[in-house]
């Protein structure tokens, strides 16, 4: 076969395989889209549960498997609305940044041990411990099945704040995990928001 024809066929193969890889976007969007009404319709449904029982539609929510991991940074029992203060403390951790073994690609924020009214929690902000030399102040993120409230994408602060409203507080909330992904220069480029119920 002539070289030019081979290049052309290679181009077709590349576009086809790339197209197959991109097919995930509509699939994921459809999943995300279908998640919303599932959660929303359940609330009114509860009031009529006895007269019109329906299966728990949140079962259909897509989950993501998270491995147990450890993060190093800062941790504090804090009112969730004051999280900005903890971020400030984290950003001022000069020693932590000096102990980084390589450029971090993500920052994890882990909320656990919520107060009864869900206004306070033990919050940890940090890098994965395996990229921090002599990591102290580390928190273990419990592995398991998490429900993704916000897909990995660029989200505004408002969207992240709104994600808290999408949590199903009638379930037994165990923890919330926010992951902020960074570019090569350390600027956040995308984030995702996941919830783990007991």
């Amino acid at each position: 076969m002539k070289l030019m024809s081979s290049f052309a066929i290679s181009g077709v193969v590349v576009v086809s395989i790339w197209g197959l890889a991109m097919m995930q976007f509509p699939l994921m969007a459809a999943t995300e889209h279908s998640d919303k009404p599932d959660v929303q319709v359940e609330a009114p449904n509860l009031t009529t549960k006895q007269s019109n029982p329906r299966p728990n539609t949140t079962e259909a929510v897509k989950g993501v498997r998270i491995n147990t991991m450890s993060i190093s940074g800062v941790q504090q029992k804090i009112a969730i609305k004051h999280i900005a203060k903890l971020w400030e403390t984290f950003e001022n951790q000069q020693a932590l940044n000096k102990n980084l073994l390589r450029y971090p690609r993500k920052i994890s924020v882990y909320y656990q041990n919520f107060s009864q009214d869900y206004q306070k929690a033990d919050v940890s902000i940090g890098y994965l411990s395996d990229i921090v030399r002599s990591a102290n102040q580390s928190t273990t993120i419990k592995g398991g099945r998490y429900e993704r409230v916000l897909q990995k994408a660029a989200h505004s602060n408002e969207e992240l704040a709104d994600a808290w409203k999408k949590i199903d507080y009638r379930k037994n909330l165990q923890s919330v995990l926010e992951i902020h992904y960074l570019d090569a220069s350390g600027h956040p480029v995308s984030s995702e928001f996941m919830v783990n119920y007991k």
């Binding site: 590349v14 395989i17 790339w18 197959l20 890889a21 991109m22 995930q24 994921m28 990995k152």
Partner: peptide
């Protein structure tokens, strides 16, 4: 592209 097994398979072929 998301970090999924599907993406990995496509990337291996390419």
């Amino acid at each position: 592209l998301p970090l999924t097994p599907w993406t990995i398979l496509c990337c291996i072929v390419l």
